[in-house]
Design a protein around this nucleic acid. Structure first.
Lengths: 192, 192
DNA sequence: TGCATTTTCCTAATGCCTTTAGGCAACCGA
DNA sequence: TCGGTTGCCTAAAGGCATTAGGAAAATGCA
């Protein structure tokens, strides 16, 4: 019988598409096998197990996000860079909800450390060089930005801001305004 | 044969405990049946299906969160109220990670509208009365606070801020400082 | 109290998912 | 072209969700 030409890479890529179509939770080896018109057991020649597939999709999403972030940040600084980076996350989540969910998949520490997730943190840090922050405030700001981006996008994706005025786009813009203002005017630590 | 005395309420409560112990994802009718030493099919007299159980746990978590928030906000205003409300979310997530994850469970629109989630939004709004914001900025600020609280707590729970200096508690405090400053000094909308 | 009704829990069966074992055919290098 | 490796298969076992149908316990009403 003819071979299907499976590889881990093709499977993970197809898994990512599947995630965007039906949700990351519903990504299953069975569904993937169906998509390739192949028996489930055959996938085990290319993937260790179901978790391995999900990990692969997560790493793919993290890498895509980091690539987009790098592109977006190139040649920009300050408020411009902030908006660009923020939109990378929001746009990615809206274009690829399944992949975005995958990017939140809990990786083990070793895998996470080797993932493109670290690149993302570095880029947020790079963005902050356009503002006048020194350690440890810079780290606090990195964490704040990560929280806002992730939090907002999650809530928006969960439908939290739909069906209510003002529309989400407007809030997003005003929130970025506010963050920009905050970063330019970061409050000094209080006395203990 | 003696009856086990199951009720939807007891099952949901036990499901919430199970979630905190093994994670919301792993909450399963089978595991719950085992916990009550009962056959799985028996649960269907009390719950419509597996999703019904998860919905119940989500509603329980949302209600508990709203109760805590109401307590925390009583008699406080401004920066005090902000810290109190923020800590409600963070502490709840750390004490009850499974329930906190459940609170993120995607409810259908009708159920969500009837849940304690709306009470939470109202309380965030109440908190903002201590600052000088008018619509639509107040709504933007509600969404910002929701995003930061949820985003920070999620990332922290996922281990994002561990094993790196400065420690998470310090970032949390400084971020709340920053948000307080931002709310007291919310930037005016730019001209179109 | 006695009896009918309802409720609760059971067994049995089905279907979907994951994972492992073992086999044969297709591919690749020498 | 021949032997080894790899890719895909069948088969089987185990877990979870769900439904159908039955029997015993609880309930309620005469």
């Amino acid at each position: 019988m003819a071979r299907a030409g499976l590889t881990a890479d093709r499977l993970i890529r197809a898994g990512a598409e599947l995630a965007d179509e039906v949700g990351f939770e519903q990504v299953t080896l069975s569904a993937l096998a169906r998509r390739f018109d192949v028996k489930v057991a055959s996938l085990y020649s290319h993937l260790k197990n179901s978790r391995d597939l999900k990990t692969g999709i997560a790493l793919l999403a993290l890498a895509e996000l980091a690539d987009r972030a790098a592109d977006a940040l190139a040649g920009r600084a300050g408020r411009d860079a902030l908006t660009a980076l923020a939109d990378v996350y929001r746009d990615y989540a809206r274009e690829h909800p399944g992949r975005y969910a995958a990017a939140q998949f809990r990786l083990d520490a070793r895998t996470a450390a080797a993932s493109a997730g670290v690149r993302q943190a570095q880029m947020t840090r790079a963005l902050l060089r356009g503002y006048d922050l020194t350690e440890p405030d810079q780290t606090h700001a990195v964490r704040l930005l990560g929280s806002v981006f992730h939090g907002y996008v999650s809530l928006e994706l969960a439908g939290g801001f739909s069906h209510s005025a003002p529309d989400s786009q407007e809030s997003w813009e005003r929130i970025l305004d506010a963050l920009d203002a905050l970063l330019r005017n970061w409050p000094a630590a209080k006395a203990p």
